[in-house]
Design a protein around this nucleic acid. Structure first.
Lengths: 188, 188
DNA sequence: ATCGTTGGCTAACGCCATTAGCTTTCAGCT
DNA sequence: AGCTGAAAGCTAATGGCGTTAGCCAACGAT
């Protein structure tokens, strides 16, 4: 019996892929093992539990989103940066709904938790977007929360199929970006 | 052995209460039964499955949110209506996080599904809020999606404990309402 | 070549959702 | 009041899933 050569990252990647395909809630240890050509208990040599695995998926998603944002925001500012961040986030959630949904119960266990680090990097990117607007220092936190809530909410509802189809969702998204852009510009 | 006098509504109410206390994901048929002073299999005389129970919880939550919104919006318009709706939604989610999270995988099974009906009533209330602003007819759908995404996202993140504590979340919420109000007013 | 570590396996436990089938209660009818 | 049939509760059993224990083979370092 040859070895499969697994490690935590491989298990996490397999589970993340599965989550995108069938939904995070339907990801079972047995299915992950099957995808890796391994028996279920073998997974426990690499991850501590299913909860641990979910947290690793969340950390992976946050890193990927953070990277994507960093790339997309290169050399952009103002409305361009806002639009780039918005599209990047939406695209990621649409393409990786399972991974992304793992990030919802955000409970970093400490400052060195990968989830906390990844989350902070995403927030840094949002802060970079806001830097392109003249926003009062005291209001930046509020504006950050605005962006987070709006993008997260939109993406979540869209991924859940919550928008009726008769009106174009893409158009709404553009309208929404414009709404925020204008609002942030007139923010003292 | 006397009868417990259960019905679908009682089972749903018990499960909803439990969900608010321990989180929807931790609600098990056994715990619901225990709370009702009944053995687990007895629940199946009133609900078809755990999935069915979750859908009933979602429908309950939507009805409750719809009622609360309707009450809160009585005789209000413009900024007052917007603020009332926002606070009502936020308060509900904070007080009933378990119930509310049951509404996330919105998949109404047909036009007569209680989930569809409840959801439509909530959307009607949001439409009523927008009626207080002069918004171009073609843009109302976009504005509806803005409100949904923003409120849903904010409430979800807050319920998950996603906002750091050093800056007041209440203040952010007020700032956010103001941001939307000003934006909607300058919307042609 | 060997040795300790590591990664895989089988077997087993316990919890949970769900079903089958029995018994008892109770509302409505006579 | 007595009867009767449907509905509500129960016990027992099944199958799936997460997880642990303990065994054995593979492999890198000496």
């Amino acid at each position: 019996m040859p070895r499969a050569g697994l490690d935590p990252a491989a298990v996490t990647a397999a589970a993340a892929g599965l989550a995108d395909e069938i939904g995070l809630a339907n990801v079972t240890m047995g299915l992950v093992a099957e995808r890796l050509g391994v028996r279920t208990p073998s997974l426990y040599k690499h991850v501590a539990s299913q909860a641990d695995l979910n947290r690793r998926i969340a950390a992976l998603a946050l890193v990927e989103v953070g990277d994507a944002l960093r790339d997309a925001l290169q050399g952009k500012s103002g409305r361009d940066a806002l639009a780039a961040a918005a599209h990047t986030l939406r695209t990621y959630v649409v393409q990786h709904p399972g991974r992304y949904s793992a990030t919802l119960p955000l409970n970093p266990q400490g400052p060195d938790d990968p989830i906390a680090i990844g989350g902070a990097r995403v927030l840094d990117s949002l802060a970079a977007v806001l830097a392109g607007y003249d926003i009062d220092k005291a209001d930046t936190v509020h504006a950050m929360r605005l962006l987070r809530s709006l993008f997260h909410g939109f993406a979540t509802i869209e991924a859940a199929g919550g928008f009726e189809m008769d009106t174009d969702v893409d158009k709404s998204f553009e309208w929404l970006i414009d709404f925020v852009d204008r609002g942030l510009k007139t923010e003292a």
